[in-house]
């Protein structure tokens, strides 16, 4: 039995203020009068295996939080079914609430309670004690233990995040839902956080985690790329990267902004994006060779031109899939 099972799940927030689709899945007909009917709508499907770290990766507004709220039994879908630990999110919501840990995107602990009081509160709500499951949170909690008498509202972002994770774990959940735990967090703290998730996985906890940072994809066992409520792809990060269509070249020259404009205005290299200190050009290799591109750029008076074939990142894949 998978830890999470999602079958044709569909949710639409119509009438939403924008009058456009917002939610997860794809409505039957994309005009305003039909948006609120789930009839003929297309839902999303996926399974998460026990002990897996499964990433939902996509920008704000893609439907990540909606999916998390349905799976944690906080809202109802319009159609389709979902099971967590084999329990139905509609019928067995009480059972699911006992078994899952949920860390929402917005900090939702009690700001007026201290670190220790918050942790105690959540332990009590779940009929357990801090002592009983201390082993599970030890590594994380020890980092904030020196501040255990400080009010949660007075903690820094990084410490709040650690407290929230400790509270979500205190009843030893079998499935952990983390909605954008690293948004707005600096790269060093982000890496540290993923280290903690890896340790939790080793203790057998299944983790569903969402993030807008594409570079975190490679830390998941499998990922779903999501945009506008739909999955663009579900697979291991490795498989997604190996399925990239076309070749990918990294191009550099002395004037990077002019280089971008020149690459864009040349038909065979028009599919081009800035990528750190290089530009990534997606090329249909039949159409263009490294030499012919070099020649074109030399004509445009570029100096110190470097062109190298590279392996695509998840971000390259996301951009290709979201355009297609």
């Amino acid at each position: 039995m998978p830890a999470i099972e999602v079958k044709n799940l569909y949710k639409n927030y119509y009438p939403y203020k924008s009058g456009k689709f917002a939610g997860i899945g794809k409505p039957a007909i994309e005009n305003e009068t039909n948006l609120n009917s789930p009839l003929g709508a297309e839902g999303i499907n996926f399974n998460v295996s026990r002990g897996e770290i499964f990433g939902i990766i996509g920008p704000d507004g893609a439907g990540k939080t909606t999916l998390f709220r349905i799976l944690t039994t906080l809202i109802l879908a319009d159609s389709g079914m979902a099971f967590v630990d084999g329990f139905d999110v509609v019928k067995d919501y009480k059972e699911i609430r006992k078994r899952v840990g949920y860390m929402p995107g917005k900090f939702s602990l009690y700001q007026d309670l201290t670190v220790l009081e918050n942790l105690n509160f959540f332990a009590t709500v779940f009929n357990t004690t801090i002592e009983e499951n201390y082993e599970l949170i030890k590594d994380i909690y020890q980092q904030i233990e020196p501040f255990k008498n400080r009010r949660a509202g007075k903690l820094s972002g990084g410490m709040k995040q650690k407290l929230a994770l400790s509270c979500a774990l205190i009843h030893k959940p079998s499935v952990l839902f983390l909605d954008e735990p690293t948004t707005g967090v600096d790269p060093v703290s982000r890496k540290e956080f993923w280290g903690m998730l890896k340790k939790l996985k080793q203790q057998g906890i299944t983790i569903l985690v969402s993030t807008p940072y594409m570079d975190e994809a490679s830390l998941c066992d499998r990922i779903a790329l999501i945009q506008d409520g739909r999955f663009l792809k579900i697979d291991t990060p490795k498989n997604i990267m190996s399925q990239y269509e076309n070749k990918l070249w990294a191009v550099q020259s002395d004037n990077m902004y002019k280089l971008l404009l020149d690459l864009r205005s040349y038909e065979p290299s028009k599919n081009c994006f800035a990528f750190g200190d290089k530009h990534h050009v997606s090329v249909d290799s039949g159409q263009l060779t490294v030499d012919s591109l070099r020649q074109y750029l030399q004509q445009k008076e570029h100096t110190n031109i470097e062109i190298r074939e590279i392996k695509p990142t998840i971000e390259d894949c996301f951009m290709q899939l979201s355009q297609g």
């Binding site: 996509g58 920008p59 707005g184 594409m214 971000e315 996301f318 979201s322």
Partner: peptide
């Protein structure tokens, strides 16, 4: 102040073109 947090990768790049 962190103008591109949570924005999709294509828009993030278009945003930087506006900056340039």
């Amino acid at each position: 102040d962190e103008p591109t947090g949570g924005v999709d990768p294509i828009t993030r790049r278009q945003f930087w073109e506006l900056i340039y």
